[in-house]
Amino acid sequence: MDIRIAAYAVIIHDGEILLSHWNEHGRSAWTLPGGGVEGEEHPATTVVREVREETGFDAAVDRLLGIDTMIVPAGKRLHGTAPLYGMRVVYRAHVTGGVLRNEVGGSSDEARWFPLEALGSLKTVSLVDVALQLNAEEPADGVPSPLWPQARELR
């Protein structure tokens, strides 16, 4: 089994959430800005770097919200031949500077603010639901409570 650790930011300002459009190998959906830990990088460093790369904004971490895990079966992976254990570290963060722009040459192709009430009409990855639940509940152990089954899949 392969392992991937990634860090993501929940950034909400004036009733809007900052999302990044993931677009890779014919699959696409809106997700939180974030991505994989590189080398010896700490996830808190990763999330700040990834927000900058994917959105153009500088960000600061406010707090750790929790950690979500998932298994991607080998047959559903875009890369690799073994199952993937994914660990997704979710932080609440805020923008400290920069200018909104789209990532070039990465797995995302657009960044945009969306009103929170518009999320239901967007195609999002399950991480968005998990992260918003963590943001609302702030569980002491950082473990998200179970979501309804359809929320765990790509909408």
Rank of each mutant, 00 (worst) to 15 (best):
G106I: 09
H13M: 11
S121K: 13
V130N: 02
G26F: 07
E38A: 11
L64A: 07
V95Q: 10
I71C: 10
S121D: 13
L127W: 13
D58M: 09
L154E: 05
P83T: 07
V61D: 07
A59P: 03
Y91R: 01
V10F: 00
T69H: 14
H13G: 11
A140V: 09
V125Y: 15
V51M: 06
G39W: 08
E103S: 15
T81S: 14
V47Y: 00
R92K: 12
G105K: 05
R63E: 14
E103W: 08
N135P: 06
A7M: 05
V130E: 04
G36T: 15
L84W: 08
G26Q: 10
T46W: 02
P83M: 03
L116E: 06
Y8V: 00
T69I: 10
H94R: 09
G34W: 02
V61A: 08
V51F: 00
L132T: 04
V99M: 10
A74V: 00
A59D: 03
G75Y: 06
I67A: 12
E103C: 11
A111F: 00
V72E: 10
R101L: 07
A74R: 05
S121E: 14
D58W: 11
G86V: 09
P83E: 07
P149E: 15
L84T: 05
Y91A: 03
D14Q: 12
S121T: 14
P146D: 15
E137A: 14
R52V: 11
W113D: 00
E54W: 01
P43S: 14
G56L: 06
G106P: 07
E117G: 02
L19M: 06
E24D: 14
E16W: 02
G98K: 05
K123V: 13
R4C: 10
G97L: 05
G75D: 11
L127H: 07
P139C: 03
S126G: 08
A74Y: 07
T124A: 02
E50M: 08
P115D: 01
V130Q: 01
N135C: 08
V128W: 08
G120N: 12
A118R: 04
A151W: 12
R49I: 07
W113L: 06
F57W: 00
A29K: 01
E153A: 12
D2I: 04
E117L: 07
G34C: 07
L78T: 09
